[in-house]
């Protein structure tokens, strides 16, 4: 099988890699680029642990072929914190204990940030449906939903000039 050469932008930086045509974006991130923050929980788009942002839209990277990333922008969990500064979704996950094992956490954080980027004031129901594609087996979702609510409030304050 001849390899594909893919040129893409990952977390703002240009990246090139070689992969088989049937390699998923998730496998390319994890195996070729060493970005293991995106997790594989199912490989079929049913758990959301591999959620990344592809050209501004959140997708399951296990349901994207690596070749499709050619020329596109990919943002992963590794790019959510800017420099050493945590994003409010991350810091609120920590403040509220919204993770236990932490395996689903990268996917939740990428998805929750994507929600708050488009809607600064989602209702509990909107948060729950937005995150329905991210499975968490440890927390029962309660603290995750609260962390997203608190992050939203924090972001609204930041955005509103005092």
């Amino acid at each position: 099988m001849s390899k594909l050469q893919v040129s893409t932008t990952i977390n703002g930086d240009p990246q090139e890699f070689l992969c088989d045509p049937d390699t998923t974006l998730l496998d390319a991130l994890r195996e070729e680029l060493g970005l293991t923050g995106s997790k594989e929980g199912c490989g079929s788009g049913d758990c959301g642990a591999c959620t990344v942002i592809l050209d501004g839209k959140m997708v399951c990277s296990c349901l994207v072929l690596a070749g499709e990333a050619e020329g596109r922008q990919v943002n992963t969990i590794e790019g959510v914190a800017e420099g050493g500064e945590l994003h409010p979704v991350q810091s609120n996950f920590l403040e509220l204990g919204a993770l236990q094992c932490g395996f689903c956490t990268p996917g939740f954080i990428v998805a929750a940030k994507a929600l708050l980027d488009r809607d600064p004031n989602p209702s509990e129901t909107e948060i729950r449906y937005w995150l329905a594609g991210n499975l968490c087996r440890c927390t029962g979702y309660d603290k995750i939903v609260r962390a997203v609510q608190d992050a939203a409030a924090e972001l609204r304050q930041e955005r509103t000039p005092a």
Partner: peptide, 9 residues
């Protein structure tokens, strides 16, 4: 269909 992630694709 599926989740937001899935519907984005």
């Amino acid at each position: 269909i599926g989740s937001v992630q899935v519907r984005n694709r």
